[in-house]
Amino acid sequence: MLADIIEYDFLRNTFLTGLLIGIIAPLLGTFIVVRRLSLIADALSHVTLAGIAFGLLLEKKFAATIVTPLYGGMAFSVIGSIFIEKLRGVYKAYEELAIPIILSGGVGLSLIFISLADGFNTELFNFLFGSVSAVSQKDFLSILGISIFVIIVIFLFYKELFTLSFDEEHASVSGIHAKRIHFLFIILTALVIAASIRIVGVLLVSALMTLPVASAMRLARGFKQTIILSVIFGELAVVLGLFSGYYFSIPPGGTIVLVSIIILLLSISAKRFTFNSKRERESA
């Protein structure tokens, strides 16, 4: 694949895009997991699908290329995230209710757009499960822009995001603008999801945001270490997943998730191994 990457532009775009989302998905995913919001990623990815379908519909029926599927997905994802926040405010004691509402809304809208366009076939399949050949130069540049934005914002607001994630009440009492920071966070989430879908697909995007984090949490000490390990695992999963997907002609969503699960299993047994050996030493 390496030679092909150098030779074919579209593969190079895919590979570089993969490297980018291998950073931003687990980076943001760490905050999502510790706040127990993993399911929000799923809900938003389905809303993003509606936006993608909308973009495809415009392309197909009206040959309108202003709203590319990526931008359509981004717009829907951001709007969806705002809706989730509103719903979580309305159902304070049942915050998780927002998730099925938004998720089913996203799927419903997607179905409507898809049938209005009389179906999309392969392209839709690519969006569901990811693709090694779907990334255009234009998409790559947009995703590069999103990634730089996300990384800079997280860097600048790291301590606020971290403080808020650990203890929302304490954060607000101490004078952090919890609502605004949370809003920023949810917008970032929407952007990262929209960016990741090209490679891993709607159905598996939340996996790339959560599995590397689940593995990292087993091994890391502290939050910074968890982030760093998550990103390393994310990159590993993306690179190995893309290569194997390319060789075996499997959508990379599938291979990336499988690699992530293998990493997870290894990290669980690694932890058990160190724990056991410590116990053995103590009892010896």
């Binding site: 510790v34 971290f162 650990f166 000490r221």
Partner: peptide, 8 residues
């Protein structure tokens, strides 16, 4: 608080 929160 979330006892699984990875923070030192």
């Amino acid at each position: 608080f979330n006892k699984g929160f990875p923070a030192t």
